[in-house]
Write a protein that binds this DNA or RNA. Structure first.
Lengths: 246, 246
DNA sequence: TGGCGCAAGCTTACGGCGTTCACGGAAGTT
DNA sequence: AACTTCCGTGAACGCCGTAAGCTTGCGCCA
């Protein structure tokens, strides 16, 4: 009973809730191991249950369906990735803006490479079977996106780069970007040209990392570090950040 | 019998071979419909066989396994995509180099959007279940890559852009690019800086198209055309091609 | 033209999958 | 002590890929 009060974070959970939470965690942990070992099709309720010493229908007390489990995993990985990027960003002194963005972008790639299967679940093709993002997964995804918005906001505030002229943008692109700006929680709505630049950078980063994680960069050889660093240099140059070697 | 001679392409195939070929085609055609309709997990031997009025084990006369079928499909889609890009390239007069590369890159995206599921199979995450490329699939993939090499070779021959200085490249990146150059069948080995530029452009193109196909560009709104065109402009600018509206 | 060989396709079977439903028992509540 | 709530089981249904053995009939060659 005293243990309850000790472990209780905010609202002291009953014993039942604690053991339930532990089971929930165990399920997702085993599921992740299977995902890493055998890919998305390898994460099966029956296999998880077997490893836990129970039967598959029992798992339905915790997840309404196989898809729901996948969604929960997606949400977990989004927040884990966001935490990894944030941690890298925070690992350098606040005034070292250049160093922090280098660290953050490299952390994104590092997490992706260290967690290929999980990354594929987040950024690979959607579909009925890795689960079309819904509910908590999409929220976690937006929280992840916010991390990059913050990084970018800092650069923007410091006026590190010349904001491209809005006149260069197509009217329809302007409309899209305006909606985008409203949709996100920027402190002060950035100029459209800057938003476009951010999008472009994100696309490039996504491109390199995806290609590497999905093994579509085999033609360049085994050491993709060099290519990534070169891309990183280009991406950072677009936002006025001088490149630094790792 | 006369039909034999009429339909025979090169070496007149026996009747058995013809009907076998037709069955092979029918299998892949049905498989593709299922892929499009229900994603990779939806393409199942049993469902295909059912639709053909036969039983699943019968299909093993045509494909050694489910994976082998997937690989064959990958190979087909690679050549189909390569054909689409080549056709777009060839649809303009040979001397209109700028127009041709515009058409080719747009054709790549168009095919990807019109064949999302197929594109995901080709450029999505690998794995035991969409099949790690082997044999004919990888050959078809290289043939596809060659299409882009050709496009780029043309720009390079015309000296459309300032080739970046090789000194700006990391030694290890130089080594990777050198291996890359030897590995591919360029007429005359291009400078390393140019190769790097090509790779960078390809990464950017892959990035936009992947994000769009995988529905990871939802934040920008429903009309992604504008964003793609803006990226295209940037990509082309990198190789000295002035942008033209579609 | 007759017969033979071989490939196509079927049947049956095994193990694995997600999911549903009815049930027992334990934990917690009143 | 009675009652409720939740956890987990067992059996069942229909799906899946794949293996082994068997029948049938087409097509080649003598």
């Amino acid at each position: 009973m005293q243990a309850d009060a000790a472990t209780a974070g905010t609202t002291h959970p009953t014993r039942r809730e604690r053991v339930r939470e532990a089971t929930l965690l165990e399920i997702k942990e085993i599921a992740r191991r299977h995902l890493v070992a055998h890919g998305p099709p390898g994460v099966s309720l029956r296999a998880i249950a077997r490893e836990m010493g129970m039967t598959a229908p029992g798992l339905y007390r915790y997840f309404g369906s196989h898809d729901e489990l996948m969604l929960a995993m997606q949400a977990d990985y989004f927040t884990e990735l966001a935490d990894a990027v944030r941690a890298a960003d925070a690992s350098l002194p606040p005034d070292d803006v250049d160093g922090r963005i280098h660290a953050a972008l490299r952390a994104f790639r590092r997490w992706a490479l260290a967690n290929r299967a999980e990354f594929a679940l987040l950024f690979g093709p959607p579909g009925p079977h890795h689960g079309t993002p819904e509910g908590p997964a999409v929220a976690a995804g937006q929280e992840f996106a916010a991390v990059f918005f913050t990084l970018f906001d800092r650069l923007l505030a410091e006026e590190r780069f010349a904001v491209p002229d809005d006149d260069a943008l197509t009217p329809v692109l302007c409309r899209q970007l305006t909606a985008f700006a409203e949709h996100t929680g920027f402190s002060t709505a950035p100029p459209l040209g800057a938003l476009h630049l951010l999008t472009s950078c994100w696309v490039r980063l996504y491109g390199v990392v995806c290609m590497e994680v999905f093994h579509h960069l085999g033609f360049i050889g085994d050491d993709v570090d060099a290519l990534f660093e070169a891309e990183l240099r280009g991406i950072l140059a677009a936002v006025g950040v001088p490149y630094r070697v790792p």
